[in-house]
Simulated scan of single mutants.
Amino acid sequence: MYKNYQTNSRLQALDKFSRVNDRYLTGIKNIAKTFVTRRSDWSIGIYTGESLFDFACPEKISNPVLTAKDITDVPANFVADPFMVCEDGIWYMFFEVLNSFQNKGVIGLATSNDAYKWNYQQIVLDEPFHLSYPYVFKFQNEYYMIPETSEADSIRLYKASNFPKKWTFIKTLLDKNDFVDPSIFQYNNLWWLLTATSEDRNILRLYYSQDLTGGWIEHPKSPVIEGNKNNTRPAGRVVVLDDKIIRYTQDCERIYGNKVRAFEITELTTTSYQEKAVKGNPVIKASGMGWNQIGMHHIDPHKIGTNKWIACVDGKRDRLVIKQNSILAILQKRINARFKVNN
């Protein structure tokens, strides 16, 4: 009987301790939620490969090559959606910078002599509305840019008036819809443009035109994809190579921006559209750790030799950050300000 009493007492003590411990942990979690939040951070990396469907991080590169910490002229939460071009041996990369003060995207510029090591330059395009996905391309020896401007319900064309730092708005190509990730390319003497629409970004529309600056017509088969989250939203530059058209798409079936898949457009005329998934999908995906822990959703590949490709990509990770309006954030700002004064 005494042993039973001892056992019951111990069980009661353990139960009481467990309840107290649970309340303590719950209290700690609630306090943490008051001051700390989880944020997804995008950053930019460089991958290489032997084909348009085979990319990985090369040994000579320590990714990411650009992060929000590299941005010096605006406060930044992340960098993403990189596009690059090479002019006279210099690589120029344009990308979204999320301005944390204004909570909207602007377009930044970085340069490189070898496409491996990058130096941030400055913000080159800022509008009253959100900008991202700065699709840069060359036509008739002039550089153009079509950034995503879905917040303005339009697709807008910009031209470099002083490449690479000054861009001038030329014309609205399409309007009255929330076009996201507009991706333009030339094929068979026509301009083609793929863009996602709808609140869920699960509708892919196709347009074509004889003239870059006007006369855009929606394809009779458009929308060419509806209701499929793993192959709708564009994920970077459309590549036309040896009469083959390769488009990249975000796979958002499980979570937004999880991985990138590739599709070959096998038939494209003003009346027809067909595509098929390529072997080896996904082309790039989350690694489970580090800078691209939980997602990759963009790729811009460029051929640099026989069976040699280089691409700028982006990756996402989760991290805990102090909430901006919390007491800890205010104290942190004061400490940082005091530190700057003392130094």
Rank of each mutant, 00 (worst) to 15 (best):
T271N: 11
H302A: 14
S198L: 06
G280V: 01
G214M: 04
I265Q: 09
D181Q: 05
C312M: 07
T271S: 14
T269G: 13
R237M: 04
K279E: 10
S198G: 04
H298N: 14
I299Y: 03
L194W: 08
K279D: 10
L268R: 07
V239W: 04
I245S: 02
G257K: 02
V260N: 05
L241F: 14
R237T: 08
L174M: 09
Y248R: 08
R247E: 03
K303H: 05
T306V: 11
W192P: 02
D242N: 15
K221D: 01
N258V: 04
M296K: 02
R233F: 11
D175E: 15
Q210L: 13
I310V: 13
V283I: 14
E267T: 10
G305S: 01
C312E: 04
V239T: 09
E267P: 04
W216F: 05
S183E: 00
D178K: 15
V224F: 03
E264F: 03
T271K: 12
P223C: 06
Q186D: 11
N228M: 12
S209H: 06
G288S: 09
I304V: 12
E253G: 10
Y207H: 13
K244R: 14
K176S: 09
Q293H: 12
Q186G: 07
D251R: 12
E253R: 11
Y248E: 14
S183I: 04
W216E: 11
R247P: 00
Q274N: 12
Q250H: 01
G305I: 03
E226D: 11
T172D: 12
P182L: 06
K229L: 10
F185H: 02
H219R: 08
P234G: 00
I217H: 05
E264G: 10
N188S: 15
G214C: 01
C252T: 10
L204G: 01
K279L: 07
N228K: 13
H298C: 11
E199F: 08
T232M: 00
T249G: 09
K285M: 14
T306S: 12
D251H: 09
A262D: 01
I217P: 07
Y256N: 03
N188A: 15
P223D: 06
K259Q: 15
M289K: 15
V278E: 03
I217R: 12
G290C: 10
T271I: 12
N188V: 01
E199V: 00
H302D: 10
Q210S: 14
K259W: 05
Y256D: 02
V313L: 08
T270V: 12
G295H: 04
P282M: 07
G257R: 01
G236M: 04
S209P: 02
T271L: 11
